[in-house]
Simulated scan of single mutants.
Amino acid sequence: MTTFILIPGGWRGGWTFDPVADLLTASGHKVLALTLPGLGDVPAPAANLSSHIEAAVQVAEDCDDELILVGHSYGGMVVSGVADRARAKIRALVYVDAYVPETGESVWSLTSPDFRDIFIAGSQADGLTCVPPSNREPRCRPHPMATFLQAITLTGHWRDVPRKLYVGAHGWEGSPFRDLHERLSNDPDWQTYALNCGHNVPQLEPEALAEILLKQA
């Protein structure tokens, strides 16, 4: 049995992976879909990227099975941080239309000007959290701004994970991930997939995503 740790993108909790989690568990695997600090019912406006990574590292270290880490969008930052630190056995890293940072980079530095404008507009109320854009689901929560702004520190150990996959969503305009997908497609250390859907892959293409993940188990 493999344990899948699923890390959601901005404003979302583990619930965003429900359709994918159902398919993975039906195949006999364990699924831990995380809701990071501040993205559930308990606000944590002071949470930053380090605290999100620490929360996910603790989950990974408590697992005895082989792990597959999956990060959607912002969750890619956390996946890299966990893989760089965790002593647990990680079989694969899967970035789903997600940021893949180098040390010293942040969501703010990696994203597009349009998304920076969204962050600025969303943080005007208190300067600590970014409210979800108006087209997000009601379950979305204000996202701690420091997690978008803080630069990640990596040793490079995450690159030692034997399998690294990138799943791009190519059915939406304004994606900050298309150039990254193209670059990784030419990198022999990576396996890449392209889905013709919007950014919210776990809910728009759960069957396709689950199929990709199950191939790694």
Score class of each variant (00 low, 15 high):
residue 2 T to K: 04
residue 3 T to K: 08
residue 4 F to H: 03
residue 4 F to Y: 12
residue 6 L to C: 03
residue 8 P to L: 06
residue 8 P to N: 06
residue 11 W to L: 00
residue 11 W to K: 00
residue 13 G to V: 03
residue 15 W to V: 07
residue 15 W to R: 11
residue 16 T to L: 07
residue 17 F to Q: 12
residue 18 D to N: 11
residue 18 D to W: 08
residue 22 D to T: 04
residue 24 L to C: 03
residue 26 A to G: 12
residue 27 S to H: 14
residue 28 G to M: 12
residue 29 H to W: 06
residue 30 K to Q: 15
residue 30 K to W: 07
residue 31 V to I: 07
residue 31 V to R: 04
residue 32 L to H: 03
residue 34 L to Q: 00
residue 35 T to W: 05
residue 36 L to A: 10
residue 37 P to I: 03
residue 40 G to T: 00
residue 41 D to M: 06
residue 41 D to A: 06
residue 42 V to E: 02
residue 42 V to L: 06
residue 43 P to D: 07
residue 46 A to E: 15
residue 46 A to G: 01
residue 47 A to N: 09
residue 48 N to L: 02
residue 48 N to I: 03
residue 49 L to G: 02
residue 49 L to M: 09
residue 51 S to E: 10
residue 52 H to Q: 14
residue 53 I to E: 03
residue 54 E to G: 03
residue 54 E to I: 08
residue 57 V to H: 10
residue 58 Q to I: 05
residue 60 A to I: 11
residue 60 A to N: 06
residue 62 D to S: 15
residue 62 D to P: 13
residue 64 D to F: 09
residue 68 I to Y: 06
residue 68 I to P: 05
residue 68 I to F: 07
residue 69 L to G: 14
residue 69 L to M: 10
residue 70 V to C: 13
residue 70 V to P: 08
residue 74 Y to C: 02
residue 76 G to L: 06
residue 76 G to F: 07
residue 79 V to S: 10
residue 79 V to A: 05
residue 80 S to P: 05
residue 82 V to A: 06
residue 82 V to C: 12
residue 82 V to D: 10
residue 83 A to R: 14
residue 85 R to W: 08
residue 86 A to P: 09
residue 87 R to C: 09
residue 91 R to N: 14
residue 92 A to R: 07
residue 93 L to H: 06
residue 94 V to K: 05
residue 96 V to T: 02
residue 97 D to C: 13
residue 97 D to H: 08
residue 99 Y to A: 11
residue 100 V to A: 01
residue 101 P to F: 01
residue 103 T to V: 05
residue 103 T to W: 01
residue 104 G to E: 10
residue 105 E to N: 11
residue 105 E to M: 14
residue 105 E to C: 15
residue 107 V to R: 07
residue 113 P to L: 11
residue 113 P to A: 06
residue 117 D to V: 09
residue 120 I to W: 05
residue 120 I to A: 02
residue 121 A to V: 00
residue 121 A to Q: 04
residue 122 G to H: 00
residue 123 S to Y: 00
residue 125 A to T: 12
residue 126 D to C: 03
residue 130 C to Q: 04
residue 133 P to D: 03
residue 134 S to Y: 02
residue 134 S to I: 08
residue 134 S to P: 02
residue 136 R to P: 01
residue 137 E to L: 15
residue 137 E to T: 11
residue 142 P to D: 01
residue 145 M to A: 11
residue 147 T to F: 00
residue 147 T to K: 00
residue 149 L to G: 06
residue 156 G to I: 14
residue 157 H to M: 05
residue 158 W to D: 09
residue 164 K to P: 05
residue 164 K to V: 13
residue 164 K to E: 11
residue 164 K to F: 03
residue 165 L to K: 01
residue 166 Y to H: 04
residue 167 V to M: 14
residue 170 H to R: 11
residue 171 G to L: 12
residue 171 G to W: 12
residue 172 W to E: 12
residue 174 G to N: 10
residue 175 S to G: 13
residue 176 P to C: 04
residue 176 P to T: 08
residue 176 P to N: 13
residue 178 R to P: 03
residue 182 E to P: 08
residue 182 E to A: 14
residue 182 E to W: 08
residue 186 N to K: 15
residue 187 D to A: 04
residue 187 D to G: 12
residue 187 D to F: 15
residue 189 D to C: 10
residue 190 W to C: 11
residue 191 Q to M: 11
residue 194 A to P: 01
residue 195 L to M: 14
residue 197 C to P: 04
residue 201 V to K: 10
residue 202 P to R: 01
residue 203 Q to Y: 02
residue 204 L to W: 07
residue 205 E to H: 04
residue 206 P to E: 09
residue 207 E to F: 05
residue 208 A to Q: 13
residue 208 A to D: 13
residue 217 A to P: 09
